[in-house]
Nucleic acid binder design. Structure first.
Lengths: 204, 204, 204, 204
DNA sequence: TATGAATGAGGGTTCATTCAT
DNA sequence: TATGAATGAACCCTCATTCAT
């Protein structure tokens, strides 16, 4: 019994190592730079070994994506709970979650870009879109509905508004990740200014 | 004399074919999908032929990028002139240009992604891109300044605000390009709603 | 245990085959003639296979070079030991080693030309080559010093004299390898005549 | 009539340019570096133009070789005439010519290596060997015969001795060209020492 | 479980050369 | 005379993947 557990643990460790390596490679140079051999080199196993844990390269990337997705949701939910605990009103909760969105992207560029920037059709997004990415979207929608009820923002098609908010947050995040903005202010200022401005526009 | 012109034209025709092929390949999967061999296959010439027109792959992509940049700027400027001709106020001019930004991205996904999404450091064109990217940025800043003077939007650090506007527009565009939004409304609605909301937030 | 050894042996066998093939290709036209594809063809493996054993073409040639270097030194040392065992005087030992130098070149034209004729800066091995090339040189110098002490040859700057001897031996070898001399005598006669003449010139 | 001459002159000028370019490319990196396109680039004509003057790459290199051969012979003959004019004895004449041999190689590394180092079977040496390279050899033989008659050197098979002398000179030259000898003395010293030593060995 | 062996496909690029103009 | 257009062959090398052990 015991040694089976050990095996499982070891097995999971290698899976982890593979994902970690893929993640770091992805971070450095994007999807193109992730190759089975490079992963193998990095974890100091043979390329063949990876195929014991993942069916193919796509499966590795998909796992990476799923993981990023989970962490992303977790970050959003945590920030929401904290906002809740702090007794914020619905609008401020939304702003807090929005801020958390951008912070997550900045702190985890590799996950953010694999989730939202790279166009990984090879990873068969279909399943993913259903399975999780839009949990974040639902969270957003729910927050918007609450804010509408509280009167913090205008009434309206919450799905449309959620898409709009998402646009704003995604633009903010990916610009911060990929471009050196010709700016006199700090990144923090840009984030809060943009979020504040957008939600002010949503107020009645 | 005449036949020289013909030659030039033909020469340019092949250059064009190459760029077009590269552009269409780029559309599918980004830079990785663009290969000299694939371009050659598509235009039905040998790979070697491409090297008569471009020094290497980088030069092909650079041309593509420069072209996209020029078209992008042109689209923005044209919309500005039209807004001007229509006698719009500064704020509405800004909205018109913003709308043109998103429309350009939707109409030219390959150009938009080569300009703003793909991370082409390999093309080492940062400076070149910037020169043009920031022409768009300056256009934005100038519009903002004008709107401030007219009183249409709040006073403030125009470089910060321009970055903020850009974030919003970029987010809108790339979401529209890369994701099927779970939306009940149309893309047009999303665009105008987002732009309106954001600029309403900028009003005093 | 056993099968590991077998594996190692097999692995070495293919390494050997690669080196042998490279060696034989080198024989024809030098470095330019050595190509990964040609090696692969010759050993009847795919080109990719070679990359399991060597990082790149340079590594193949480097190994070839190191091997040639080792064999060359070995040949010189062995002839020296034999001369020693035969109780020859210092001058005759020198002549014996000199003869061995030329014989090695004739018997191993690929090695000789990779070592001393081809200008393999591309292999960036100058230091490596030198380390061994100058072991041969030191052996020569030591022999000269001994002969000076014994009175067999004139006193003098032994490094200059060693260079001079080396010139003579290298000229002899490379002429024998690369040209059909318009000669009435045999190669053997040329070798012994040249060596004898040169060392006679060195006698006081 | 006149313009035909001009044409010929111009034609020859381009031939010359081609050869010059080939020569300089050859000098830099050896035969492998000489390519039709690089020659064309260097002379600022199209690659096709070269084919109006030379049947193919081989013909270019052959011309280069013939030219080098002519210059080489010329250098040897001139030194011989000078030695004659200076009233030197046969042995000293031989030494003078020997010195000129090495000097030519050092002053014209590209010609020397194309003549004696590179193994250009592609240039069909056969014809060349007969046609000129061995004029130098005959010159050497004649000098040796004269020196034998004068009593400056031992009697013997002059063809064997000439080969031997050639070996020594070739070794000296190619070592000086291709290797940084680990030497405390100067190149000049090495040259004169080696030549002197060898001819001393030839003296009775 | 882990790997060494092996490969076919494809990557960018350079070459000598031909042909029509 | 000179060239622009074009190519097939070859170059080194990396990729994801399979298979037997």
């Amino acid at each position: 019994m015991k040694h089976i557990k050990r095996r499982e643990r070891e097995s999971n460790e290698i899976r982890r190592k593979i994902i970690e390596a893929a993640r770091s490679l992805f971070l450095n140079q994007g999807y193109a730079e992730v190759s089975m051999r490079k992963i193998a080199d990095q974890i100091e196993y043979s390329p063949t070994t990876i195929y014991h844990y993942f069916a193919n390269k796509e499966a590795v990337v998909r796992e990476l994506l799923l993981e990023g997705n989970a962490l992303f949701l977790q970050a959003l939910q945590q920030s929401q709970e904290e906002a809740e605990a702090a007794g914020l009103n619905a609008l401020d909760k939304l702003k807090t979650v929005s801020d958390a969105y951008v912070r997550f992207g900045m702190a985890n560029p590799e996950y953010y870009s694999i989730l939202f920037i790279s166009n990984l059709e090879s990873v068969s997004l279909v399943s993913l879109i259903d399975s999780g990415r839009f949990k974040g979207f639902e969270l957003l929608e729910a927050g918007l509905l609450a804010a509408m009820e509280e009167g913090g923002i205008i009434q309206g098609n919450e799905s449309l508004i959620a898409s709009s908010v998402w646009s704003m947050l995604h633009g903010l995040t990916s610009l911060l990740l990929n471009f050196e903005l010709p700016m006199t202010s700090s990144k923090d200022e840009l984030i809060s200014f943009t979020i504040d401005t957008f939600f002010r526009g949503l107020q009645s």
